[in-house]
């Protein structure tokens, strides 16, 4: 990989990789470390990327995903990577919508969280997500469905709160 090709790959993918790591880990410093390691991996071992297996973007996100999960494994029990455990309740009281969504997504199991982030925010296809997370498309669909169901449940209180706000600012809210 020439210097020009690497620079081009970096410029086209730095934001995507960083945003994914930021949403996965919830920390700007950790996200930067992960993003740096992703691109240094590409620089040192360009042969690991096989264009026949997928796009460069899905390869870089796969490396980022593995690094993020490794950090999570180092901090938590291994079996909590699986997506079958009960979801903890989150307190939405006093939180703005964005903060509430952040907390809800952070409380998802990592395997659900990663597919949701890649589908919802990076708009990858199911096939690209499957390559990035090293799973079958059917498994990705299943995890994405469970992630969205969990978020629907966790964020349901915001619906009534937002409806109340829209009513207070609407016809009935005129002073």
């Amino acid at each position: 990989m020439t210097d020009a090709e690497f620079r081009s790959a970096f410029e086209q993918n730095e934001d995507v990789v960083y945003r994914f790591a930021w949403r996965m880990c919830g920390s700007a410093a950790v996200a930067e470390d992960i993003a740096q390691e992703v691109f240094l991996t590409l620089l040192r071992q360009p042969g690991r990327f096989d264009s026949a297996r997928g796009t460069l973007r899905s390869f870089l996100l796969a490396v980022a995903r593995n690094l993020a999960l490794k950090r999570w494994r180092d901090d938590s029990r291994l079996d909590e990577l699986e997506d079958q455990f009960a979801m903890p309740a989150i307190d939405l009281e006093g939180r703005e919508n964005a903060e509430a969504v952040s907390a809800a997504v952070a409380s998802l199991p990592p395997l659900q969280r990663e597919v949701l982030i890649l589908a919802q925010y990076e708009e990858l296809s199911l096939e690209e997500i499957a390559r990035a997370v090293d799973a079958e498309v059917g498994t990705v669909k299943s995890r994405l469905h469970r992630a969205r169901e969990n978020l629907r449940r966790m964020l349901a209180p915001l619906k009534s709160r937002n409806m109340g706000r829209s009513i207070s600012h609407g016809t009935f809210g005129r002073s």
Binding site: V17, R23, Q120
Partner: peptide, 9 residues
Amino acid sequence: LQQWQAPGA
């Protein structure tokens, strides 16, 4: 979900 914005690199 779209209200949760992430910063760029």
